[in-house]
Design a protein around this nucleic acid. Sequence first.
DNA 1: CGCGGTCTTGAAGTAGCTCAAGGAGCGTGG
DNA 2: CCACGCTCCTTGAGCTACTTCAAGACCGCG
Lengths: 243, 243
Amino acid sequence: MTASHSPFARKLGAFVALSDRELIALDGLHTRRKVFPSGRDMIHEGQTNHSAYIVASGWASSYKILSDGSRQIVDFQIPGDFLGLRSVLCRTADHNIEPVTTLEASEVLASDLLDTFTDMPRVATAVLWAASRDEAMVVEHLVGVGRRDAKVRIVHFLLELKSRLKLVGMATSAGYDCPLSQNLVADALGLSTVHVNRVLRELREDGLLTFRHGHVEIHDLDGLIAMSNFDRTYLDEEGPMLI
Amino acid sequence: MTASHSPFARKLGAFVALSDRELIALDGLHTRRKVFPSGRDMIHEGQTNHSAYIVASGWASSYKILSDGSRQIVDFQIPGDFLGLRSVLCRTADHNIEPVTTLEASEVLASDLLDTFTDMPRVATAVLWAASRDEAMVVEHLVGVGRRDAKVRIVHFLLELKSRLKLVGMATSAGYDCPLSQNLVADALGLSTVHVNRVLRELREDGLLTFRHGHVEIHDLDGLIAMSNFDRTYLDEEGPMLI
DNA sequence: CGCGGTCTTGAAGTAGCTCAAGGAGCGTGG
DNA sequence: CCACGCTCCTTGAGCTACTTCAAGACCGCG
């Protein structure tokens, strides 16, 4: 696998060892590309009959708004991730999706996907794997919000992001670019913006990491992993798990 | 559909209108029945090569334990629910499952399920629907833990449970039996046991609901729905959504 | 009858919230 | 080119919704 493949192909290639033919087929799903501006919902809760997408570039957020106006962000989507895969199945979306940055995404027809599956069953395995990884991430997110204090929660979140970005070549162990505002992080982690700011300052002062100006710099990876009990094997595998 | 069918068949019948032949086929999945004692894990995190089950009677909990010993319960399973469906796919479980009460469950082989699917595609639709409902419930759970205060969180939780139990004939609008200890509720909702106790007392004093001695009594359904902004349509449909 | 789990209540502490106000970066229009 | 109006970041001060600790009551069970 080379860097010339799409983030989507790179990601799946990390799960399941794929042949060139299979990787090219995955890239082939990237026709019908669209661009979405940031800050405007591309999928509304309750909306029916929309499509699924694969993110080509940019970040998005899926979230719910409560009656009192507060927002819970369920997950962020980065290049290579599916957007709204489940809501295609359910026919009606159960949450909103809004680009965080300008977003390029390719519309994926269920039929195209299924054709690829019958043609190349290993691809089906990989997609299923990716889908259940997404579900596992929501569970992990729930655990964090329910039982971890703010500092550990934020560290865990930033490490997870690092692992995910690394998979598509957008992060190193030293750091990564991150377009999320402190407000977005707060709404994802069930905290207030103010508190996120304070914790980020503490982490900076402790020499653990710096998150500023859209960039996360990791100063002490071992320290971060130790304090957050981040599971290295959870998302951070080197090489495909299934040969 | 009559009450003589299994909870599983009842539940799916509420999603998709199923013929007698289809309902009977679903009941047919309930061979290979096993009994699990309460309080002992039936599936461990990291365990591989275990089976999926359908709960026939009793309650179970799926949860994760953090390094500091605290526990986050991700979901409870009631009769008619799948147990460990995703971990069959992933090969290795990403959370523990422990019966809350004595549990009767039927082992389901992936092959049996797939045979039923090819034979009766509507069943596949129904199972897929149930699976994505489960996922939607985890998301809703995350929203609650992240953004709702303790009172609303508990009310929402108990109303959701009511809706789910109603689907399998184990609850009425007046109330239901609930074997969960306050400690279990606390670990599901990211609260302390003590605080759950206090909030429950408040709800009782406000004449909204009583949760005592393993029984939830609903005194003021409209009041509860109003204060928690519970979405009536979310799980509470009357009649199948897909004819 | 005593014992472990659950429930209940009080008292005191604290993590994280809200409110408030100022600064820094940046696009936009005068 | 500067002034403006954003949005985002930063910091302080005070508050409150929760937590932890502690102790007693209840209850089913061996």
